[in-house]
Structures are given as structure tokens and as C-alpha cells.
Write a protein that binds this DNA or RNA. Structure first.
Lengths: 346, 346
DNA sequence: CCTCCACATGTAAACGCTTACATTTCTATA
DNA sequence: TATAGAAATGTAAGCGTTTACATGTGGAGG
């Protein structure tokens, strides 16, 4: 493996000159530049950007921590950050936290040891020391899928309260009175928690009573959604509509409801959250709250580089969210067939 | 930012000793070890693994190039490689090639400059110079979702021919005579190409004639699947079953067919490929060829580390693939209602 | 043809760690 | 208690770049 020194010798110049043709080619006379280029060719020189990172204190690498790359929404946002990182000639190291704070903690440590220039993190726990330390040490990072507007860190996210409100409002407008929610575990992320608040807020504003039994928490999985919807439907007085705190859960719920013999959306309206790519391919096509995941990822990266290049005040960017109405929701049935059908199928 | 030297001074030992407590703690007397540990604490020392990489020539980082993290199958396999990389205390840098060879080429260059210890790549182009160079330079890498058994590189994959065969055979056994295929563009990947060969092979073995019009190529997208199935169904003599070369395409096809007024699977059987997590949540639940994506990712990482730790002959691992029969396929209808229904709905 | 200045190139230290080798300190045994 | 040998620690070079600073060179203007 040849180095800059080999090249220099071969070309009869100094290492500084070689370095210059690599980093600022215009600053060296065409003549010498060509000599160097040829020499590089001849000894099939390969640049070592790790060595550069070592001296410049810039690794041209950022970290990206998400709960789970398996979830299309996170995959989407990952692509967004990658696109911008690419533009900035920066590599991204990916880590999954699996919604575990300890894992997050460890990843941050490892990534920082790797001398990443900055970090994008979709955190599970806002209150932990991880973020606090990052802030204290003025390490450049941005929260992705953040729920907070103020606060001492940069963040891009959406208004989850509003999202939950929008979803619920839609159901209320369709005449539903008994509206359930299956939410991601509040202990796993507060996004779900805020959506639930939106849901409750809307219920209150609409004069509907909220009852505890109408909420069931689960992990963010297909099977979780499936099991949870069954719980709701087995209630003595089951909901006629349910708001699921993400599309994955909703997809599970769709199946669970179908398995219990319901026809959708006639017997049960379902609205999701995220608007992942396949939402419109579900049966029925899923009504859901849109979250611009790709865009958010890209924006997070933009913000991060701004922070890296000129440290300063934290930047916050809350993006628009809106309801996409498709076919999984419909007006409440006028007959009581719904109730009886469920009971028949239990 | 304090360094090993600061710690050493503070603890009254040499840098070598500090390095030892970091890397082989048992080799230093408890007494001194504690002094060092305390010193680290006191000056809130942070290890710089980039510097280590620089001297040891091991960055503890590997590269992972896939076509698109958006595709759940690749996401799944990514998690597999991450799991094993974690165990090996190694970071993974992710790159999307978007099925573009030029992008692949560039990523490999950039990653190698970053001094990755090895590379896992799901390539778009077996014949390009990228792989050839890697081989020539004895750089450790493994092909993921590989289609080749022999050859000068390590690889883990499945038998795509067999997969295509299995899918088609299933349809033949159900009595279908006119079986279409919507395939990923052959120019994008040869996986699809091999599956098509399996399809053709089975047709031949079953005494069915293959006709060119029954194949339509598309990109690996939902909308691609949707559009392609419509093309097939608009044929003068449309197929009664179609094999889609991945589940994403199949999901699109399901929707396309439904939109044309067909009821599934009665009017049209569809089988996919991959068996992504949501396959059993589709409507109808998708019959598909299972590919152990997570397992493959993990295996690829295992192989890679073997290669890194003790270079030697290329290792190949072809994993099992099998058909999962669900609800999107059924015996061919006996009436001619199928044909007329299509025509009615055009 | 000289001078001066801008521009091109060279010199050498520095980055934070590891490690081969040298030296010191223990420990156990005679 | 002396001593050999093992165990712990220290010394210093080296990894492949960048970069501040010093030096050298070319060409325009006098």
C-alpha cells in the first residue's frame, strides 16, 4: 500500500505538494500536477481519508441512530439524511436502538469514539443523560422525529399532538362516538404519547368522554397491532373506530379486525399514522396522518451540517403534517348490525 | 479534549500503561490501573478509536452497500449484518446504490478511502470492474443476495433459479396454463433474471409454452407492479396467474388487479418473492418464495469477519429457499367467467 | 538585466494512539 | 538474604496525512 510519500518520491516533489494536488489542485502548477498524477497512477496510490481525519479532526462521518431500520418510516428518513450527507461528502454510520435506551447510550459512546462529526438521533428518551451530555459538551447533534419545539437542542419533527388530533377529529366528523386507540408503548417513545394527547384533546373538544379501556398500548409491531385490535373489539362495548399510532400497527389492526369477521370499513374505521409508502396499497387503503419522513431526514442532515460548520444556537424545524383520507374510514353505521356481528364472531 | 498523554501525566505513568489499561486491563497491576482510571475520570478522557485505527490499520468499520434501504428485504438483511457487526465491535457504514452501477463504483471508492476493514455488497453488476478490482487486491468482501455459486468471491445468497421454479411450479400444480411474470429489470440485477429462468424452466418442464408477451419488466416499485399487471391483464389472452419477482411488485400487482375489477385470488393468482414481513398482512395474504433475509445478512457478516481475520479461499453459502403458500393463489377457475369479467372491466 | 512580488514548492512538526524492546520491580526459591 | 526469572512499566518510533512557515522560482515593470 503506497502512501503520499511514495508518490512524492516518485514524482520528485514533496509530500506537501502531493497533498495539494489532492486537496487544492488549482494551487499547483499544471506541470507538477501532472507529474504527481502520473506517479499516483504508477504506484496505484489510494487515498487514506482516515489519516486525514486524524489530523484535521474531521472524519467526514456522521452517526444516525434510529429505533429500527425495519420500519419503513425510518428507512425513508434514513434515505433523506443519506442524500444530504452524500452532497457533503460524508459517510453515515447507522445504528438501531431497538427502542432501548441502554442501546442508545452505548451507540452514542461508540460513535463518538469513532470521531463522528455529528449525530442525528431519533431518541427513545428525552430525559436521559445522553442528550444532556451532548448538550453540555456542545457536540453537534439533531433530534429527528422530535416532539419538542423549545429546548436546548436542535430538532426536526412534527406536531404529534396535532397529528393525533387530526386523526381523531376525522373520525368524530364521521359520526363516531366510541373511538379507540392503539398506541405504541409510552415507555418506548413519547411520540405515541403526544398523539394520544391529541386524541384525548379532540375527544374532549368534541364533548365525547374518554375512557381508559379504549386505549391499549403495544410495541410497534404488526402482531402487536393485530392483538391489540382484538382486545378492543372484545370490549363489552367495542369502539366503532380506532386510531392507531402508526401504520404498522394499523396494518396489523386491519388484519386482526378482518380475522374477527368484520368487514372494513363498514364495521370499523381505522386511521393510521405515518403514511408509509404502502399505505395506499393496504386493503382498505389506509386513511392516515402524513409525516414527511424523507424530507425530515434531509432537513435533519441540513441542520446538522449547519451546526457543524458554524456552531450556534440550536435550530428547530417543525414540519407540516396532514391527514390523508383514503378508504379505511367511513361514517358510522346507522344500524346496530355492527355490534351484533362482533358478538357473533367472538 | 484530553488525550492519553494527559491521562498518563495525571496518573504519573507512561502512555503505554494507559493504553494497556484500555486494551488489556489485566496486564496492569490493580493499583496502577485504578490510578489511571481515576485520572481518566478526572480529565473526562474520551477514547479516540480513529487514532487507534490509524496505527493498527483496523478501523473496526465495515461498509454495506445495498440497492435501497427502502426495500424491507434489504432493511431486514441490514439488521442481520448489524447484529453480527455489533458482536465484533464494528460499525457499519451504509450506502444505497439505487441499482446504479456508477453509484456502486463511487461508494466502493469512498468506503475504501475510509479504510473500512471489509465490505458487504449487494451488487447490481457482477461483471463490472468493481468486483474484479476488489478480488485482484485481495480486499475482503462478500456478495450479499448473490446469484453465483462458484467464482472468485465470497458470497451468500439463494438459488434464484430454484425460487422462480418453485413459484411457477406451484401455479402449474394449481392447473394454470397461462402464467405471466412481472420481473425486475434485468439490467438492474441478475437476481430477477435468474428467477425468470426458473420460471421458464418450469414452464418447459411442464410442457407449457413460454411466450414473450407474458413477461413484463419494471423497476422494483409498487407503482411498477401496478402498471405491469395491468399490461398483462390487457393482453388479448391474459394470464390466469402471475409470478412477481418480488413482494413489492406483487403488492402493486394486487392493487392493479383489484382496480381492474378482478376478485383475488379467484380471478387471478399471484405469487411473490422475498416473503417480507408484511406479506401475510396483504389482502389476500401473499403466497411467496421465502428468502431468509435477516439470516443472510448475518451470515454475510460472519463470512466477512472470517475473511478479515484469516484471509483465505472465498467462502460461499447458498441458503435454503422455499415456497410459502398463503391465500393469493388458487386453482384455475373452471368457468370462463374470468375472461369475460376482465373484458367487461377494461 | 535587476528588483520585487506573487506564486509555487519544500520542511518539518503535529495529530493520538500502539507496540517492540528496554528497563525496572516483584515474587519465589535457595 | 541473595538472586533468577517473571511480571509490570517505560521509552520512543511510527502510522499517513495536513499545514504553518520558510524557501525558492518566474515574470512584469523599471
Amino acid at each position: 500500500m503506497s502512501t503520499i510519500l511514495d508518490v512524492a518520491r516518485l514524482a520528485g516533489v514533496s509530500t506537501a505538494t502531493v497533498s495539494r494536488v489532492i486537496n487544492m489542485p488549482e494551487s499547483v502548477r499544471e506541470n507538477t500536477r501532472n507529474k504527481v498524477l502520473q506517479a499516483m497512477e504508477k504506484c496505484s496510490y489510494k487515498y487514506n481519508s482516515l489519516a486525514r481525519g486524524f489530523v484535521t479532526k474531521r472524519s467526514n462521518t456522521i452517526g444516525l441512530i434510529i429505533p429500527n431500520i425495519n420500519n419503513p418510516v425510518f428507512a425513508e428518513s434514513t434515505m433523506g439524511v443519506q442524500e444530504h450527507a452524500d452532497k457533503k461528502n460524508t459517510r453515515v454510520i447507522l445504528g438501531n436502538s431497538y427502542y432501548k435506551y441502554s442501546q442508545e447510550e452505548n451507540l452514542v459512546k461508540v460513535l463518538r469514539e469513532s470521531q463522528i462529526d455529528g449525530l442525528i438521533i431519533t431518541t427513545t428518551n428525552l430525559k436521559g443523560n445522553v442528550l444532556k451530555n451532548l448538550v453540555d459538551e456542545k457536540f453537534p447533534f439533531v433530534l429527528l422525529f422530535s416532539t419538542v419545539k423549545g429546548g436546548p437542542f436542535s430538532a426536526v419533527g412534527i406536531d404529534n399532538y396535532k397529528g393525533g388530533y387530526l386523526a381523531t377529529e376525522h373520525l368524530v366528523n364521521l359520526g363516531h362516538k366510541r373511538i379507540g386507540m392503539v398506541a405504541g408503548n409510552f415507555s418506548m417513545t413519547d411520540r405515541s404519547y403526544h398523539r394520544w394527547h391529541g386524541y384525548k384533546g379532540c375527544l374532549r373538544d368534541s364533548g365525547l368522554t374518554y375512557s381508559k379501556e379504549l386505549l391499549v398500548q403495544t410495541d410497534y409491531s404488526l402482531s402487536g397491532g393485530e392483538a391489540s385490535i382484538k382486545k378492543l373489539l372484545c370490549l363489552p362495548s367495542p369502539p366503532t373506530a380506532v386510531f392507531c399510532s402508526n401504520d404498522y400497527i394499523a396494518l396489523g389492526a386491519l388484519k386482526g379486525a378482518r380475522d374477527m369477521g368484520l368487514t372494513l370499513p363498514a364495521d370499523l374505521s381505522i386511521v393510521g399514522f405515518d403514511d408509509m409508502q404502502t399505505a395506499s396499497y393496504m386493503v382498505p387503503a389506509l386513511t392516515t396522518v402524513h409525516q414527511p419522513a424523507y424530507e425530515m431526514g434531509r432537513r435533519a442532515a441540513e441542520v446538522l451540517f449547519q451546526l457543524i460548520e458554524s456552531p450556534g444556537k440550536p435550530l428547530q424545524d417543525m414540519m407540516e403534517t396532514n391527514l390523508i383520507v383514503r378508504e379505511s374510514t367511513t361514517a358510522i353505521p346507522h344500524t346496530s348490525s355492527h355490534q351484533s356481528r362482533i358478538n357473533k364472531n367472538q
